[in-house]
Amino acid sequence: MIKTSTQNELIQYVYNELADDACAQLESTFMHDDELAEGCSELLQLQSLLDSALKSPHECAVNNILSYSKSLSLQS
């Protein structure tokens, strides 16, 4: 059973928010703790899946923004 504090550290780790020394400690724990390493792997897979769920706006919406900015530049 992974401790709650370690699970929180794991989340900070996969989101690059863990301090360097804590990162190194966690990475060394992966070497002998399969459950923790598996937990990390699952989090990384979930992250990838969440990334893939990103959706793009239509090009015309983006062009509207760029045109607006350009029109402001021309006015000034």
């Binding site: 769920a53 990103l54 959706k55 793009s56 706006p57 983006v62 923004i65 760029l66």
Partner: peptide, 11 residues
């Protein structure tokens, strides 16, 4: 900047 962040903003 817009192209880099539009998908995250939109989503």
């Amino acid at each position: 900047l817009v192209n880099r962040h539009k998908n995250k903003v939109y989503t």
